[in-house]
Write a protein that binds this DNA or RNA. Structure first.
Length: 433
RNA sequence: GUGGCCGUAGCUCAGUUGGUUAGAGCGCCAGGUUGUGGCCCUGGAGGUCGGGGGUUCGAGUCCCCUCGGUCACCCCA
């Protein structure tokens, strides 16, 4: 096969799916607008250090999944594997007034073996809020994501919540856990027997039965939290309760990115039976700005995958995401220029309009009009031209109501009628109402 | 990175122990209607059977390699 295909793990979104993709994005835009977040656009590639130091040297994403390349100037760059590190880098560079609350849509690249709901390029919608350590901000950000999912009509969701502690209690817990694991290291699975000391937290969500057994009895982070972290977590959960957002404390929620402190959360779609049912997640990253060379600045945010959302909507059979079908289809038997002008007039008036090209037969144009999903055809041919009129024809089963003369041959209740050329807009908008 | 399953028209698939010019449905295009879509009828276009090599008189069918898809592990959106 000599024709090119999209690279492995990537895909083209078009047709019906394109309409749903656009609907998801626009609904996110509406939601963040409701919350007063501003759009931030940052580059799709960054100095590789942004991710190494931001996401974490030890993380799976950085160690094995990054697309790293050298440009012609010898700079070492990486395609962004996620959104947060870039946004925080932009914050450090521009220092916008705090609190800075923003949102984005970005492709994300990870070199992984593709499978259901997982691609080498996927798309994330995200929001970040920097400059406040107030737990009410955590509640707002999680609430924003919940509001968005609700706006899409998603119902079968589970919110998992945890706390990663902070600079005071996390290192102590890590040491405590490492000590515990050492005492039972012989019982761990082959992989973790050798690597538990490098990142003890990973053992907690290892799926191997032997590790699970050891993890059951391990000291819990929730019990090791310092006072301030415990208070913070309590304020977050009570805030979610107050907003009526159900949640579940998940001790095994150890998110893969190293920058998280305190609150971490993840929404899973229970309607999805595939292995990848995580819709979106995030957390607080109070040390991230500093790690990227900026002033200490607390922050919290999330990313959510558009492809996963689309899968979840499909699983919950949410058909009504609003497709981009036009309202009017102009049929032109005069060679095509008349359609250009009529479509322009309708579009200027805010009526979404499409038309045919290549001067096809009336039959062919109407067939195309039917398929387009438009409600109404506006037909111009020699007869209309001679009489200064246009013909409005219903493309549905209903008849053409409103102003204008019913087609003499069809009588009242006809599915098409003639109106004066100058009455086009009034007749069309009357009909579409 | 590891493993299971699968690659025949745009899509979903059929193709008998290897045997003539590779089929169907849907979709697309045209006609049946001197200006009327949806339903129906008729016709048409569209395939180097993923690619390469091998076995054979002969390969969509058998063997090897390779590329791709899919699902799972790992990890994550």
């Amino acid at each position: 096969m000599s024709a090119f295909k999209a690279p492995i793990g990537t895909r083209d979104v078009l047709g019906e799916e394109g309409a749903r993709f656009a609907a998801v994005v626009s609904r996110f835009g509406r939601t963040v607008g409701l919350f007063g977040y501003e759009l931030v656009v940052s580059p799709m590639f960054e100095d590789v250090g942004v991710f190494r130091r931001g996401v974490g040297e030890e993380s799976e994403v950085v160690t094995k999944e990054m697309y790293v390349f050298e440009d012609k100037g010898g700079r070492s760059l990486a395609l962004r594997p996620e959104g947060t590190a870039s946004v925080v880098r932009a914050y450090v560079q521009h220092r916008p007034p705090l609190p800075w609350r923003c949102w984005y849509l970005t492709p994300a690249f990870r070199y992984e073996h593709p499978q259901a709901g997982r691609y080498r390029q996927h798309h994330q919608l995200g929001a970040e809020a920097l400059g406040s350590a107030d737990p009410e901000l955590d509640v707002e950000v999680i609430g924003l994501l919940a509001t968005f999912y609700r706006a899409l009509g998603l119902r079968r969701l589970e919110l998992k919540l945890s706390s990663m502690g902070d600079g005071a209690c996390m290192p102590a817990y890590r040491a405590l856990l490492a000590g515990y694991l050492e005492s039972r290291s012989a019982e761990l699975c082959a992989e973790h027997r050798l690597r538990y000391s490098r990142n003890p937290l990973r053992v907690l969500d290892c799926k191997k039965p032997e590790c699970r057994l050891v993890a059951e009895a391990a000291p819990r982070l929730a019990d090791a939290l310092c006072g301030p972290c415990r208070d913070h977590f309590g304020r977050v959960t009570s805030g979610l309760d107050a907003l009526g957002i159900p949640w579940r404390h998940d001790h095994t929620l150890v998110r893969g990115l190293d920058y998280y402190t305190r609150t971490t959360f993840e929404f899973a779609a229970t309607a999805l039976d595939s292995a990848q049912n995580g819709l979106g997640g995030g957390g607080r990253y109070d040390g991230l700005a500093e790690a990227l060379g900026g002033p200490p600045t607390p922050g919290i945010g999330f990313g959510t995958g558009v492809e996963r959302i689309l899968l979840a909507c499909e699983a919950e059979e949410l058909a009504d995401l609003g497709t981009g079908v036009p309202q009017v289809f102009v049929v032109d038997l005069l060679g095509g220029r008349a359609a250009t002008l009529l479509a322009d007039e309708l579009r200027r008036a805010g009526v979404s309009t499409t038309r045919a090209f290549d001067d096809r037969s009336l039959k062919a144009q109407l067939r195309q009009a039917d398929r387009s999903g438009a409600r109404l055809a506006v037909i111009v041919g020699p007869d209309e031209e001679a009489t200064g009129t246009v013909t409005l024809r219903s493309l549905r089963r209903d008849s053409v109501a409103g102003p204008g003369e019913a087609d003499a041959a069809e009588g009242p209740g006809a599915e098409q009628r003639r109106v004066g050329r100058q009455d086009l807009l009034a007749a069309v908008s009357g009909w579409l109402r």
